[in-house]
């Protein structure tokens, strides 16, 4: 009877009380948490937006700061989901042993990991929505399709949450997460079109960026925020959903291998 860690996820509604648990903790610290998550992208947005905006009058027909706004929405969403599943989930899994307690109740590991994913996406939605509100108040977006950005943010949160859960499943300690940021998150942020259009990159880098999930998120978010429907919407959505599903399956298998022994 060798357990097959690679079997497909078997989910139940029991993930809901686990999500609720995380929500209840967050609610106690909601205001500082939202402000904390907002500060970083807002500083980038206005710092770079006005600073570089003075040098670069227009990018693709819009002001630099409007161009950057879409990048910041995706960047903020990605960061929020990533931090949650790396540091916070790792604390709950490894340091506080919260997962052990939950697994002693009639909740399966599949449900716990799925709840962590849904919670990370929920927090990412809050972060993304907060920055969306800020850029809307500053008149940096065209309001025509802006509400479509909300479900997109949730999907981006799911995608980066699932990717981060792989790292968490493998992490021996908090220090390990530094590799993920320096080797994956930061380079991706630089070549995926957050700060400048990715199509001005050398062709071989450009080809590589089409494989990165963040660039697909931006290809969708930027036109929506500038009042246009994105091109090749289905392709971008499929890439994000594909990353999310495969990463979740992989993360779950690795977590089962780690904990169910």
């Amino acid at each position: 009877m060798t357990p097959n860690h690679w079997r497909l996820p078997l989910l139940s509604r029991r993930f809901i009380p686990v999500w609720q648990r995380n929500f209840l903790v967050w609610r106690k610290l909601a205001l500082p948490s939202v402000l904390g998550n907002l500060a970083d992208p807002v500083i980038y947005l206005f710092g770079l937006g006005f600073g570089i905006g003075m040098l670069v009058p227009e990018v693709g027909g819009v002001s630099y700061i409007s161009f950057l706004a879409a990048g910041m929405v995706c960047y903020s969403t990605m960061n929020s989901a990533t931090f949650e599943v790396l540091y916070s989930s790792f604390s709950r899994m490894h340091v506080q042993r919260t997962w052990d307690a939950i697994l002693n109740a009639p909740v399966s590991l599949d449900d716990v990991v799925f709840a962590e994913l849904m919670w990370a996406a929920s927090k990412a939605l809050l972060s993304g929505a907060a920055i969306l509100l800020v850029i809307s108040l500053f008149g940096l977006v065209d309001s025509r399709y802006v509400l479509w950005v909300l479900p997109l943010i949730f999907l981006v949160g799911l995608t980066f949450g699932a990717l981060g859960l792989i790292v968490t499943a493998l992490a021996p300690s908090y220090d390990f997460f530094m590799y993920y940021f320096t080797l994956f998150i930061t380079p991706m942020m630089l070549v995926s079109g957050v700060f400048f259009p990715a199509d001005q990159l050398p062709p071989f880098i450009r080809a590589a960026t089409t494989l990165l999930p963040l660039s697909h998120a931006i290809e969708l978010a930027r036109p929506l925020l500038l009042g246009r429907m994105p091109e090749q919407t289905i392709v971008h959505l499929l890439v994000l959903a594909g990353y999310c599903s495969v990463a979740f399956w992989l993360a779950l298998a690795l977590t089962r291998r780690r904990l169910l022994k």
């Binding site: 009380p17 609720q20 648990r21 009639p106």
Partner: peptide, 8 residues
């Protein structure tokens, strides 16, 4: 409370 919820 939170633990009881895990039991539905």
């Amino acid at each position: 409370l939170v633990y009881g919820r895990y039991f539905g």
